[in-house]
Design a protein around this nucleic acid. Structure first.
Lengths: 190, 190
DNA sequence: GGTTGACAACCAACTGGTTGGTTGGTCACA
DNA sequence: TGTGACCAACCAACCAGTTGGTTGTCAACC
């Protein structure tokens, strides 16, 4: 338990766990308040609604994510490996993104502009590393690399089913396979 | 509206839409019954519970999916393209899989054995097309190819954000990019 | 220094609409 | 007459959000 953190931050922490576990519809505001050790009314005082609390959680998680992994530069295949490791060590972020994606479907997510910031920089760095222009093709490449790294954590049951056995072994194998796959595609980039 | 279909089947159809749209926790059994045009009690008579109805929906959707797209043979990059098109034309399946994956987290999904059937065949076909053995590496390759095709439909908002503009154009570009990416990785397979 | 008032953080208790699931019975048909 | 499909009405638990009030803090004022 956090010895000294603000009520607001404890709500955010508790909400992250609850939303990552059960999604927007499945999360219970009473549970969040109880786990934060504060009264439920504080959620509405600080955030306004369950859904706005979710948005605040996502925004925070994405900011941490952007800080946690750097830009795509140098060995791009290893960048994919770093992304893979990040998702392995911080599984909540991807779960939050998936809940959000399913929830908003093809409607734009709130806060889109503010969450944009990091990506221009990433596309530019990737274009530099590839020796290409900053164009749609490079954006598509970035998107695909993000997907390669995230996919094994997106449908882990399917992975566990196609590659039975110990979870740790499977992850090691999948990481190596994913990095090698990305390397082959990137090395022969036109 | 289906002019002649059994009550059970109409419940399954209505449930597929509802679950794909809102997930297990977000779906409403009253809505499902109303859209099927039957009494809610029928859900419990036929399926037993909301969650068992969800399982029935998923099982049916996966069976259709397996039938709808063939085996990975011939041009494997085009197999990825076919998968991409399938997800574009039948977006409900992937949404159902994602809801299920998030719901069961790392617990095994029910019915695992019965849903297994198709995959052995797919791995064997892929091994044959690649000229490799039926081993974990081939399973990992299949898993990655499935992911490449599914990823743009998994986080469509991120795609729309990285590649702004018309949805149709973006899909055409992403499909071509994904197929080309897969081709480069597969052509230089060790 | 002590009193007062304003304000923000917080909480226990409440509310009323919603929800998954059940019950008792009608109807058609064998 | 018995049986299975079906339904209207019901129910108790649940849930997001609200309300009225308590407490602690801090500054203004005498």
């Amino acid at each position: 338990m956090d010895v000294m953190s603000s009520t607001r931050q404890r709500l955010l922490d508790a909400a992250r766990d609850e939303f990552a576990a059960h999604g927007i519809a499945g999360a219970r505001v009473d549970t969040i308040a109880a786990r934060a050790g504060v009264n439920k009314e504080r959620i509405y005082g600080y955030f306004g609604s369950k859904e706005k609390l979710f948005d605040a959680v996502i925004t925070e998680a994405k900011a941490e994510h952007a800080k946690g992994i750097g830009l795509p530069e140098g060995d791009l295949a290893e960048y994919v490996g770093r992304l893979y490791d990040y998702h392995r060590q911080h599984p909540l972020l991807l779960r939050l993104l998936l809940w959000e994606s399913l929830h908003y479907d093809d409607r734009p997510v709130p806060d889109q502009d503010r969450r944009a910031q990091g990506y221009d920089e990433k596309i530019a760095a990737l274009a530099h590393a590839l020796g290409t222009d900053v164009d749609r093709e490079t954006a598509a490449t970035l998107f695909t690399l993000l997907g390669l790294a995230a996919w094994p954590h997106t449908l882990p049951q399917l992975a566990g089913f196609l590659m039975p056995g110990d979870t740790e072994d499977r992850h090691n194998a999948l990481r190596a396979h994913t990095v090698a796959f990305a390397r082959r595609a990137l090395e022969h980039h036109p």
